[in-house]
Structures are given as structure tokens and as C-alpha cells.
Amino acid sequence: MRHKKNPVDLIFLLVSGLASLSVIALIVGILFTLISESSLSIEKFGLWGFISSTDWNPVKESFGAATNLFGTAITTVLSILIAVPVAIGIAIFVTEIAPNFLKGPIGAAIELLAAIPSIIYGMWGLFTLAPIMANYIEPALQKSIGSLPLVGMLFEGTPMGIDLLTASVILSIMIIPFTASISRDAFNLTPAVIKESAYALGATKWEVVRSIVLPYSKLGVFGGIVLSLGRALGETMAVAFVLGNNHQITSSLFDAAATITVTLANEFTEADTDIYLSSLFYLALLLFLMSFIILALAKFFILKAERKYP
């Protein structure tokens, strides 16, 4: 049936085939370009040496990724910790609780939040959120739980609003709508029949959510969380304004730090020596690999969920 005898058809097939292969070409191209650009740094520092070194010292030309990885890990994990409970709450509200006339508008509104560009989040963070954090939230945290042993360590120092905590909060606001919308899609996969039979047995709404909807959708929700993790990992502009750009590993969330993305944004056009630029490419390579693996994992879970409950 799909006859390729017609020459125009053959051309169309080839052109469209090439267009779709461009995705693979891009991935391979990015990978090879980043590897070749960072070869200088790879040779000099190696993989483990680069990852484990906390040194980011342009004067002595000694570079390590540890401080950047630290900043990326803390902001990403913290933002997920804040975002996930809220996002799942939103998804439950939209699918199970909200009256029908509210479902549409609220769902749409939360998805609009996902469309706002990250630079706006960043700018808003600097001008509006950072002062609020510095003057109200951070002192309050310090007063309430800052004196506890161990946990208190996280809230040491002067609240400035330009720190890991503020960056994580902004990041979490950014990924909430994203996580919520994937969770909602996963919840919607629960067969209505099972829910209805539970209701018929006299289960309360929460019991249905907890014992039917959540177990049914956990793979999909988990995939959504991992996907959000991948998103948060690569976010640049939302954190660039409020992270404070200091290459350090610190125990306090009130300290400035640097993520891979922010380091790239600030220093990429600035690096004056070759090894400096090469190390930045090396960072970009690490980021690319990390996010690629995490996103692939997320995709794997989501596909699995869809296959299980089509």
C-alpha cells in the first residue's frame, strides 16, 4: 500500500526522514561537541578529580565541579521537597474535590503558571521574594527551628534573601504547575469503575484517593516527579538572580552558592583562559549527561505507567 514508486513520494519520505533524524543528530552533535570542547579540562583533571574537587580557582587554573554540583543538588532536591506535596494536593483537588465548574478554570490557571518564562520568576524573585524572605520568612525560621540541634545548622547566618533557600523556593514555584499537571493526568488514568465500587462500599473520599487513586497512579506520579527533577536541574534564569554566585559548600541554607547553570550563565562569556572555558564546557557536559539520564528515567516510568493502565 505505502508505495514508494512515485519519485516525489520518495523525496518526501527522504526529507521527512532526515528531519526526524535531526533529533538524533542533535543529541549526538551536542554530546560530541561538548566532549571535544572540554577535552582540555578532561585531560587535566580527569572525571573523578573534576567531580570531587571543591576548588574553583581561576587564578591558579584549578577547577572542580563539586561546588557547582552541590548547589545544583541542594536547590533541586529542596525545590522538589517543597513542590511535590503541594503539586499532589493540587492534583487531588482538581480531580476529586473541586466542583465541576471550578475544575476547568483552576486547572487552566495552574497550567498558565507553567507558561510564564523563567526569567520573570527570577526577576520577581530578586525584587519581590528576596526581601520578603530576608525580612520575614528567614528570621522566623531562624527563631522557630534555628535553635534546634542539627536542624539549626541549616538556618545559620544572616538572612539576606540571596541564598539557597530563596532559590529553591522560586524553583519550587516554577515546577509546581508542571508536577501538578502530570500528576493530574496520572490520576485521571484510574478506572472510574473501581473508584465507584469503593464509594459504593462506603469509603470516604480521602480513603478512595489514598487506597485507590494513589496506588493506581503511583508510577505515573513518580515519573512526573523525576521529570520535574530533570527540569529543575537545568533551570538557569529563575535561580541566577537570587543564588548569590559563590562557589562554596555550606551547611546553611542562608548562604550563597552556585549551580552548574548559574556558573555557566555568569562565567561562560568571561572565561579568559582556555582551560577555564574548557572546564565550563565540562560542566555543561556533566549537566547534559545528568539531565539526559534523569529525563530518560522519567520517560521510562511514565511509559510503563501508561502501558500498565492504558
Partner: peptide, 25 residues
């Protein structure tokens, strides 16, 4: 299927990495 999955991943690849890639090429 392979290209479809790879595209889904590409959608979320950090945009700053794409910036560095284009700078290099």
C-alpha cells in the same frame, strides 16, 4: 518510537546547554 522518546527527552534538556553547544559550533 526511539525518535519519539528521544524528542520527549530533548524537550526538557537544559536550554543553557544548547547555548553552549551553539557557541561552540
Amino acid at each position: 518510537r526511539v525518535i519519539s522518546v528521544l524528542s520527549d527527552i530533548m524537550v526538557s534538556v537544559p536550554s543553557i546547554v544548547i547555548g553552549t553547544f551553539i557557541y561552540a559550533v
